[in-house]
Design a protein around this nucleic acid. Structure first.
Lengths: 127, 127
DNA sequence: TCGGGGTGTCAGTCTTTCCTGACAGGGGGT
DNA sequence: ACCCCCTGTCAGGAAAGACTGACACCCCGA
């Protein structure tokens, strides 16, 4: 319930996480079903360390989650699956989110000239 | 509707355009009302050339539009305003968009073989 | 013991992007 | 004339991100 991260920062994190062809492809691949790092690397044709980095970026943004499972044969396999996120993006939503950013960073004048109605507004997700 | 560019590429363009604090702020500022370059630069506290670049990036992504107006006194002023875009972002949407990307790039074996769907994500209205 | 998957991390490159200062104009008010 | 405001573009430096190869480590099967 608590919005630990400011909406603006979270939005930025999500956007930067998705703003990459590789990461987009990873999300797409994961949307079809979970997979583990090495296999995903083969499937997408990229180096494991690289994939690892992108995967971590996505996970940091909360778009995917990884879980290290230990198979019965003892081998460790880290499965990733996509988080069913739902982000709506409109100019107004962006304005609201950015408002929380500016609040955190007092930029000399700029702040508060027009009365941004921006109320509580539960942005993101939902239906 | 505009379906000129492949969904995947357009999506990527939009995401990369928004994945920047500056550009996010620009969109937010423009969402409150149109403005012209120099004024916007003052308002946001950034260099004009820099703002110019970001503005062009946003315009290239189709998120804002600029129009060079000639005031009655002859001075040229380039007004920008935000385009009322509305982007919904979910894993499935991403998968669909990426599919159009992969279509352009022959990808060997893509079919997943994972059994456990695990997901159980609540998919609902995708209106 | 050896070979074969898997994970996790590192140092180092290399490309891309961001950002700044300065410039060339256009036009008007005093 | 001078000064002010605006647009548009450039070269060049600084920072960030992407990418690679190699390494240490684990556990199993032959």
């Amino acid at each position: 319930m608590d919005q630990a991260a400011p909406a603006g920062e979270q939005l930025l994190r999500t956007l930067t996480a998705l703003a990459s062809p590789h990461r987009l492809r990873i999300v797409a691949a994961l949307a079809e079903g979970r997979s583990y790092v090495s296999q995903l690397a083969r499937q997408l044709g990229m180096n494991r360390p690289l994939l690892y980095m992108h995967l971590q970026r996505l996970e940091a943004a909360g778009l995917v989650v990884g879980e290290l499972e230990t198979a019965r044969d003892g081998s460790s396999v880290k499965y990733f699956e996509v988080v069913p996120f739902a982000l709506a993006l409109t100019p107004e939503l962006v304005a609201e989110a950015v408002a929380t950013l500016e609040a955190a960073q007092p930029a000399g004048t700029a702040t508060g000239e027009n009365g941004p109605a921006a109320g509580g507004s539960g942005e993101d997700t939902s239906t």
